[in-house]
Amino acid sequence: MKYDLQQKRQLLVDHILSRQTDFYRLAFSYVKNQDAAMDVVQEAIVKALEKVDTLREPAYLKTWFYRILINEAMNHFRRSRDLLPYDDALNDQPASALDPGTRLDLYDAIQRLSFPEQTVVKLRFFEELKLEEIAQATGVNLNTVKSRLYKALKKLRTMTGEEIDHAS
């Protein structure tokens, strides 16, 4: 079935309106600030509406929008890097840098992963995307997603000191 611009736009608007709270939470999980999270979501919406004519297949709407949102979040991350002490969260924080006696809460540990690793973890476990969908949403191939997820989980295990079973 061929979709015209107005149909694609309507699908996008419906998607945004029904999922806006989820988008806010994902944005917030990166920027940790209400106004910044709002800006990220809104800029993503503006960009998506602006480019909706380039969406080829409405089946990809969900991952397409995630991709825009994650890009916006990353832009914000980069912009604020010089202003705020985000480096810990941005760069890989080797687990060995932690005091071996300290055990991190799992959610805190996720914040210490690199941006791509956090993204894979959040999309997989909190947004419940399939690995194929994560590949589309992050613009990398399936094997990269798998290896990122594997590395991320390994780091999380070291940081929390627990055998977290990631199979849901």
Partner: peptide, 25 residues
């Protein structure tokens, strides 16, 4: 961890801002 992730609530003006962004786009 999922609960921690899902706990932040959008501020009051959020939906209005979303609609404004749609118009701007």
């Amino acid at each position: 961890a999922k609960q921690a992730y899902r706990s932040p609530q959008p501020p009051e003006g959020f939906s209005g801002g979303v609609e404004e962004a749609i118009r701007r786009g």
